[in-house]
Simulated scan of single mutants.
Amino acid sequence: MYKYQQIAQSLHQMFTDGTYAPGALLPDQEQLAKQFHTTRITIRKAIQLLIVEGVVYSKRGAGTFLRKDYRATTGGISPIDQPLGTTATQPGHKVTSKILGFAARMPNESEQEALVICPTDPVYVIDRVRYVDQQLFSYEHTIMPTAIMTITEDMLKGSIYAALKAHGIAIAGSHRTVYAIKATEEDVKAIGAALNDPVLVIRQVSYSVEGEPFEFSESHFPYENASVTADIELDPRQPAK
Rank of each mutant, 00 (worst) to 15 (best):
S110K: 12
T86D: 14
L136G: 06
V205E: 08
I43P: 12
R237K: 14
L49M: 14
I160R: 01
N108E: 12
Q112L: 02
A8I: 03
Y139D: 09
S58D: 11
T38Y: 06
L156E: 00
Q35L: 10
Y179K: 09
G85W: 06
P145Q: 04
D154R: 06
R44E: 13
P145R: 02
T73E: 12
T146L: 00
F221C: 09
L11A: 03
A230F: 13
S159P: 02
E30M: 12
G75A: 04
Y131W: 07
Q13C: 05
G75R: 01
H175D: 11
H167G: 03
T120W: 07
I148W: 10
E218K: 13
G211V: 01
V205K: 10
T86F: 08
E111R: 10
D133E: 05
G101Y: 09
R176E: 09
S208R: 07
I232L: 13
I181P: 00
N225Q: 10
E30W: 05
A166D: 07
Q35T: 10
L49K: 15
R237S: 15
R44Q: 14
G23H: 10
S174V: 04
K34A: 13
H37W: 03
P239H: 13
K68H: 10
Y139S: 11
N225F: 07
Q29E: 12
G61A: 08
F36V: 00
Y4K: 03
E224N: 07
F65N: 04
G23C: 02
V199R: 15
H141V: 08
L200V: 02
R71L: 15
I77Q: 10
F36W: 03
A163E: 02
K241A: 13
A193C: 15
H167D: 09
A180C: 06
D81T: 04
